[in-house]
Simulated assay, not measured.
Amino acid sequence: MTRKNRQWYPNVMMHITTRGNRKNNLFRDEEDYKVYLSTLEYVLEKTSDQFEIVSYVLMSNHVHLQVQTKEMHIKCFMGRLNNLYAKYFNNKYNYVGHLFQERYGSEIISDDKYVLEASRYIHLNPVRANMVKKPEEYKWSSYRMYISIVPEKTIETLRILSYFKSENRRLYYKEFVESAISPKG
């Protein structure tokens, strides 16, 4: 049976998800997270600036990426990223077979509201999974770069931050994201 082609066109922003096979962990230790991020950087470099990472979060058994494409199809990026990371993981843990549950999920982000909502959703994933109380406490997310706790690396924040007033835009973004955290009552 053939698979349905993904909806894609040039210069589109996408919300990408990928999950471990049978919901198993993709990351077992700190080295795994670091290798995934360095693999992400490597693939960005090798695809000649055809993709920008807008936001990301690496959860223990899945990944969310917000990606701006240019002229190259997203499958070129994700295929290479998932393949390289799976080879690393399978080699490290002496596994054979599929690391990822299925092909990655992709959704086109079609309007400005969804651009912001996808970023907020991604950055709040660890909070909603009860891994941390505040998104800046989670190390494997781009959120800390958005609010200037750590220097920017791998991501392009300008697209998201341009929606906020130029003075204090990082603070306004922080308030926007954290306004969706429901208080425990």
Rank of each mutant, 00 (worst) to 15 (best):
K4L: 12
N5Y: 10
Q7T: 08
Y9S: 11
P10D: 09
M13G: 07
M13K: 10
M14F: 07
M14N: 02
I16V: 14
T17Y: 07
T17S: 13
R19E: 04
G20E: 03
R22W: 14
R22S: 15
N24Q: 15
N24L: 12
N24V: 12
L26A: 00
R28K: 10
Y33E: 01
K34V: 06
Y36L: 11
Y36G: 00
L37D: 03
T39P: 05
L40G: 04
E41L: 15
E41I: 14
E41D: 14
V43E: 03
V43T: 00
V43L: 07
L44G: 04
K46P: 06
F51M: 08
V54F: 02
V57E: 02
M59D: 02
N61Y: 05
L65E: 00
Q66N: 13
V67A: 05
Q68D: 14
E71T: 12
E71F: 09
H73L: 09
H73S: 12
I74Y: 01
C76T: 15
F77I: 12
G79M: 07
G79S: 15
R80M: 14
R80A: 13
L81V: 15
L81W: 05
N82P: 06
N83L: 14
L84M: 15
Y85H: 03
K87Y: 15
Y88M: 13
N90S: 09
K92D: 04
K92C: 10
N94W: 08
V96W: 07
G97L: 10
G97A: 12
H98P: 11
L99T: 06
F100E: 04
Q101A: 13
Q101D: 12
Q101T: 00
E102P: 06
E102F: 08
R103A: 09
G105R: 05
G105L: 09
E107N: 12
I108T: 06
I109E: 00
S110A: 08
D112H: 15
K113C: 09
Y114Q: 13
E117F: 08
S119E: 01
R120K: 10
Y121V: 06
I122R: 02
I122F: 00
H123L: 09
P126A: 01
R128T: 10
N130V: 01
N130W: 02
M131C: 13
M131Y: 11
M131E: 10
M131Q: 11
V132N: 05
K133P: 05
Y138W: 05
W140A: 01
S142V: 01
Y143Q: 00
R144K: 15
M145L: 05
M145D: 00
Y146G: 00
Y146N: 01
S148W: 05
I149P: 01
V150K: 07
V150F: 05
I155P: 03
I155T: 02
T157G: 03
L158D: 15
L161R: 02
S162A: 11
S162I: 05
K165F: 12
K165S: 15
S166W: 06
E167S: 12
R169I: 03
Y172P: 01
Y173E: 02
E178W: 01
P183D: 04
G185N: 10
